[in-house]
Structure formats: structure tokens, C-alpha cells
Design a protein around this nucleic acid. Structure first.
Lengths: 196, 196
DNA sequence: TAACGATAGGGAACGTTGTTCCGTTTGACA
DNA sequence: TGTCAAACGGAACAACGTTCCCTATCGTTA
């Protein structure tokens, strides 16, 4: 975790005012374009929406993954932090798990194309991949562990695999009335129950 | 179903010999390139592998979807026909369903990138999408119906949704030792069981 | 067998994307 | 106010899908 601005950051020479202004402008523009055209919208679209040149995007966000991470960082953090909270407030670990997964699914299906890009094996998205996984897999693992200890689910489920699976199920879930990712994820989660 | 060649096809003026030869050559080249570079390999790669110009590809296969369908048609047909056979030979409808889904998963995970393209909302892949769905959803529906009648699974599962879900779970399953689509699909299928 | 017309082919050309480069502008500080 | 590094804009490059047009070839017929 690097200090973004506040604090006594010695090696952070503080960027120029126009640079910081443009960074904010770009984040807003990207967020807006992502909503309408998906996270794979052309770079030029984002640039022109922000009123800057394309090079400015690359200067601030060296890869598209970095831009996507910056746009959604807050929501991912919130999701990650909700895990322990749900575990504390829910009736059972399995209920907490189910609700947390729902949170994640809600996040994904409302971000046009994000789920698809998240599973892409394009090398450019490696850091995006890594960020989501690093942040969320441990939370998922904690919930799985608690539910397993409580004897509610089988104990041979890998958190990484489950997160990938849930992410996959969310692909194409937007604007398709015949495909409801939530329902399938529920099915998957109920498949976690101890066979008997 | 249109007659490919044999039979008394009146409106089929029989293509020129070089055209038929190139079509076969292209199918072979495409199959080979798909194996090494995935189904989204550059058109030029396929053309040069076949020793023809790019326009020749478009003349025979107007869209990439058409080419993919042509390459995998046999295997898809075999999978579709295996459904009723499994239903007849398995101990229970649920077992038949599980085995049939496994067949489908095995097919998908061995075709580099096919699962991803199958769920893509790119308009160019609509016909590919439609072909797979038209051919396989009815088979799946039949198996689901039989299992539901036998009281083995819940009856509120939509075949289309299940097929999409299984297809989604297969995305990125190749060359990733930490992600086993088969395991997750099994979880999903076991989630189909009647809650009790 | 030679000539002809339609069929099919090859590769250049076009449009769209991501990415990089370079000359110009601008903010920060003395 | 002058200087200079930081930041900018847009042109330029590369890779891709797709189309176009001229040429080569096949099948037929005289």
C-alpha cells in the first residue's frame, strides 16, 4: 500500500497541479465511459471525453488494467472489508459466505464487461487479475474456512478456484434477461454443502 | 440442415474443384492454428498456413463464427447425439446428465479460447452462439426433464441458463493448474439436487 | 484442342484499434 | 520574470479485421 498523497512521503515529489487535475478528470471520464461502453472502450473515447490527448492516459495509467483498478479500487476495498463484518453479523458462516458472494456478484454484473476482462488471459490484464485476487481471495478463504469449521460445507474447496468460478459465471450477465448469474451462483454455493 | 454434397441437391451447382480443395485445406489449416494459437488467431495466420490469400477465407467462411462452426461441427454433433444415448445407458437420469455435461466440458476445455468466444457478446459471434445453443440446449433440456421427473433434481432449472453457466465455467480452464473447470461444474451440478 | 465466360484467388488498400514518439506548452520555483 | 523539468497533444507506427479490384484458373463448348 503506497501513500497516495497525505503523509510525510519523502520519495513523492508531489506532482504538478495540472497533472493531478488531469488524473482526476481522467478517472471521472473513464468511469463514465465504462458505464456506457464497457471497460474495453477505446482509449481515444476516454481521452476525448476527458478532453486530453491519448498520451496523457498512458502517462497516468501505464496499462488499461491500472486505469480499471483506479476506477474501481474503492468498491473492491469495500467488498473486501465487508467479509469479516458479515461473518460477525450473520447467523451462520454459510449465510455470511452466501451474502458476501452476492455482494461480489452484484458488483461484477453492474460493471459492463469487467467480469470478462477479469478472466482474460491477455498479459495486459495480469495486474488487474492479481489485484482482485490478492484482495478478495483471502477474504473468501476466511469465510470458507469458518463455514468448513462449522461443518456447513465441504472442506476441499479452494478459495481461488471458487472466486474464479463465480467471476466466470458473471460474464455476460448484463443485458441478458435469460441469463441470471445470481441464480447460478446460488446453485454453485448450495453445491458447496456437505454431501449427504 | 442442408445437404452438404451427396444427394439430389438441385440448387447446389457444385462448386469448382479448386474451391472445394481450398475449403478443405482451409479447414485443416484452421484446425491446426486453433490448436496452437486459439480460435481467435489472426486471419492472416490461417491464410498463410493454408497457403492462400485472406480473401479466400472470407469467400468460404463469411465470418469467423462460420469457420469455427465448420471446424468443430462433427464434435458438436457427436456431443448432441450422446445425450439420448447416455440417458438410455446410465443408471439414473442424474448420472446421465452429469456424464453428458462432462462430455461437453471436456470438449470445451480442450479448445483453446472457444469457451470465451462462445460467451462473447461480439455481434460477429452471434451465429456461433446460436449454433451451439440450438444444438445442445434441447439435449440438455431433455436430460434435465428426465432427472426432474425422476425426482432427482429441482425442476426450476432452465437448460439455457445451465448451458451458459457451464460454458462460462470453462473459460480460462486451459493451461491453469489452479483452476479446474470440471470440479466447479461438478459442484454446480450437485447444487441442482433437490434441497431437503 | 482452343477459346471463352464465369468462378475463384491474391494481395494491396482501408478503417479501427492500442501504443509510442517528439515538438510544444505550462507549472513551479528562484 | 526567466528558466527548466514536467506534462501535454496529436501525429506516427504497428497489428488486426475487412473489402476491393485485377488476375488466374476451371469447366464448358465449338
Amino acid at each position: 500500500m503506497k501513500d497516495s498523497d497525505g503523509g510525510a512521503g519523502h520519495p513523492a515529489p508531489r506532482k504538478r497541479a495540472d497533472a493531478r487535475r488531469n488524473e482526476r478528470t481522467l478517472l471521472d471520464a473513464a468511469a463514465a465511459v465504462f458505464v456506457t461502453s464497457g471497460v474495453e472502450a477505446p482509449v481515444r473515447d476516454i481521452a476525448s471525453r476527458a478532453g486530453v490527448g491519448v498520451a496523457t492516459i498512458y502517462r497516468h495509467f501505464p496499462t488499461r488494467a491500472a486505469l480499471i483498478i483506479a476506477v474501481y479500487r474503492h468498491q473492491v476495498e469495500a467488498c473486501a472489508e465487508a467479509g469479516p463484518a458479515l461473518l460477525a453479523s450473520s447467523a451462520s458462516p454459510h449465510a455470511a459466505l452466501a451474502r458476501w458472494i452476492n455482494l461480489f456478484v452484484d458488483f461484477l454484473v453492474t460493471k459492463h464487461g469487467l467480469a470478462a476482462v477479469l478472466q482474460s488471459d491477455d498479459a495486459g490484464f495480469d495486474t488487474l487479475h492479481a489485484y482482485f485476487l490478492d484482495r478478495l481471495v483471502p477474504v473468501c478463504a476466511q469465510l470458507l474456512e469458518a463455514a468448513a469449521v462449522a461443518g456447513e460445507i465441504r472442506s476441499d474447496v479452494d478459495a481461488y478456484e471458487l472466486m474464479r468460478g463465480v467471476g466466470n459465471l458473471c460474464i455476460g450477465a448484463d443485458n441478458n434477461p435469460r441469463y441470471d448469474a445470481r441464480r447460478l451462483v446460488e446453485l454453485l454455493i448450495s453445491g458447496l454443502r456437505l454431501p449427504r
